[in-house]
Design a protein around this nucleic acid. Structure first.
Length: 403
DNA sequence: GATCCACAGGAAATAGTGGCTT
DNA sequence: AAGCCACTATTTCCTGTGGATC
């Protein structure tokens, strides 16, 4: 018989450690905030907004600071009658082109019962619709494009919006673009014409160091967990691990949260450093697992082929060895196998996700150059994932090893 | 130092899907 | 219904590459 009781020892309010929690104040980003504030100043003055670009790795506060500042800005501009500020927030993950960003912006601005479809229109048409919507809102409209680097090299929209007004497409609206990017390289990939218009203000967010992470954790822990549940050493360790790895507050908070979960499951009252280490390992593991499950069918087939080779001690293996096996498994599973070139892309994907490790070998005239692939993760984890592939006929060598 | 292996990986063409316009 | 438009996944074709070997 299961019983539920309220947690009175570890978590007071675990929401505060979650991804979507928005803190009331921002810790350790003073410089960024002051630059950002200065860049937003024209809006308060009722002038044309400047375009702003934020760079920095995940979990360094770009989104949190933006949310925080824009909220302040909206509140503080209310007192001026000649400033009408609206903010439109769009996360561009999964949007790979300007066209899609434009469509999603329109749909964001429109009511749910009047959406437009994601394909079918000529590109310029979608832009026209977007301008109509913007003009309808009027005033200053800030378009926040989070994770904008996902649109890759197709940056047309970043050129269009800032110039829409001077080109006479807009009469009532003053649009401003705030781009948020995880990828510094994105800036260099932008076409020159976009760089000119868009990168008026650039703000760089550096990774957090250990003391900063500690400050952030302490800030959150005060509300999220009971005082007796955590001590400074545990917090310091979470901060240290995250600082060394990614410098991301997200990671530090995740580790702390997971540590608490582990402690709670073991019905312990205090977090220990051991819990933290376990938490880190678990998180790493589940990330890799998630990556593997999300792959396409052919990615899965490639994974199975590699697993088979690993079980036979044939790794590291080269394409020449993996491909025929992949073909057999695909055919056995009633899937049309891909050509070698394409299959190679899937292996490269696996390597990029950190699931496989690849080494370039070069035997010169005798053997040419090629990659050798082997697993970079525990085979048991791979086995766990592969066991759930129900549309793939696993080779015997694999089924035997994973039960 | 030229050659050449065995592949890496870029580029363009093609297939197939879903949706708009007239 | 025919003709567009955009997207994704793939195939086809091809040039590039590092270093052992000639």
């Amino acid at each position: 018989m299961a019983t539920f009781t309220r947690d009175t020892e570890i978590f007071r309010n675990e929401d505060m450690l979650r991804e979507d929690y928005q803190p009331d104040s921002i810790t350790a980003r003073e410089d960024e905030i002051s630059t950002y504030t200065a860049a937003l100043q024209p809006i308060v003055n009722g002038a044309q907004p400047r375009n702003i670009f934020l760079y920095g790795k995940t979990g360094v506060g770009k989104t949190a600071v933006s949310r925080y500042l824009l909220k302040q800005l909206q509140r503080d501009t209310e007192q001026y009658d000649d400033v009408e500020l609206s903010v439109c927030w769009l996360n561009c993950t999964n949007l790979s082109s300007s066209y899609q960003v434009a469509v999603n912006l329109v749909n964001q601005l429109r009511p749910a019962d009047d959406q437009i479809s994601t394909t079918g229109y000529p590109q310029q048409r979608v832009f026209d619709i977007l301008y109509e919507e913007l003009d309808q809102i009027g005033g200053t409209v800030l378009l926040v494009l989070d994770e904008i680097d996902h649109i890759g090299s197709d940056d047309e929209i970043l050129y269009e919006i800032p110039r829409a007004r001077s080109n006479g497409y807009l009469s009532k609206a003053k649009p401003g673009v705030i781009g948020i990017s995880n990828d510094f390289g994105f800036r260099d990939d932008l076409s020159p014409k976009v760089k000119d218009t868009l990168c008026e203000e650039e703000i760089h967010f550096s990774p957090y160091n250990a003391p900063e992470l500690r400050a952030i954790l302490e800030e959150r822990v005060a509300g999220a967990m009971y005082d007796d549940a955590v001590d400074d050493a545990v917090i310091a360790l979470c901060a240290a691990i995250a600082a060394q790895d990614t410098g991301s507050a997200r990671q530090a908070l995740d580790i702390l949260y997971k540590s608490g979960e582990i402690a709670r499951t073991n019905s312990e009252k205090r977090l220990t450093e051991e819990h933290v280490h376990q938490a880190r390992e678990k998180l790493e593991q589940s990330q890799v697992e998630h990556g593997m499950r999300e792959l396409t069918k052919h990615g899965h087939l490639a994974l199975v082929a590699m697993l088979q080779l690993a079980f036979e001690q044939e790794t590291p293996a080269r394409i020449r060895d993996v491909y025929p096996l992949y073909r057999r498994i695909a055919e056995g599973s009633n899937v049309d196998p891909l050509v070698r070139r394409r299959m190679h892309d899937h292996l490269a994907d696996l390597a990029m996700l950190g699931i496989l490790d690849r080494q370039m070998k070069n035997e010169g005239r005798a053997g040419g150059h090629y990659y050798q692939y082997e697993f970079d993760v525990d085979l048991d984890i791979v086995g766990d994932v592969v066991r759930d592939f129900d549309s793939i006929a696993l080779p015997k060598g694999v089924t035997a090893r994973i039960e």
